[in-house]
Amino acid sequence: MISGEYFTIDVLQLSDAPSLSKMMVENRSRFQRFFPYTLAQNLTPAASEEYIQRKKKQNTERTEFTWTIRDKKTTKIAGLIILKELDWKRGVGELAYCIGQKFEGLGWVTRTVETITKYAFSELRLRTLQIITHKTNIGSIRVAEKCGFQWQKKLVKSYTAPDGIALDMELYERYTDPEASGR
Rank of each mutant, 00 (worst) to 15 (best):
G4S: 09
G4Y: 07
E5Q: 08
Y6C: 12
T8N: 10
D10P: 09
V11D: 09
L12Q: 10
L14N: 15
P18G: 05
S19P: 00
S19I: 06
S21E: 03
K22N: 10
M23S: 09
M23R: 07
V25F: 00
E26I: 07
S29A: 14
Q32Y: 09
R33L: 08
P36L: 02
P36V: 02
N42W: 00
T44Y: 08
P45Q: 06
A46G: 05
S48R: 02
R54N: 05
K55G: 07
K55D: 05
K57T: 13
R62Y: 02
W67V: 12
W67A: 14
K73F: 15
T74L: 02
T75M: 10
I81L: 11
I81D: 08
L83P: 00
E85C: 07
G91S: 04
A96F: 02
C98S: 06
Q101S: 08
F103G: 06
L106S: 10
G107R: 04
W108N: 01
R111A: 15
T112N: 11
V113Q: 02
I116V: 05
T117N: 00
K118D: 04
Y119E: 10
A120T: 00
F121I: 02
R125Q: 07
R125D: 04
L126F: 06
T128R: 10
Q130E: 08
T133P: 07
H134P: 02
K135M: 04
N137E: 11
I138N: 09
G139Y: 05
G148M: 14
W151I: 14
Q152L: 12
K154N: 15
K154A: 14
L155Q: 15
L155A: 14
I165Y: 10
A166I: 01
L167C: 08
L167M: 11
D168S: 06
E170A: 10
T176C: 13
P178D: 11
G182Y: 06
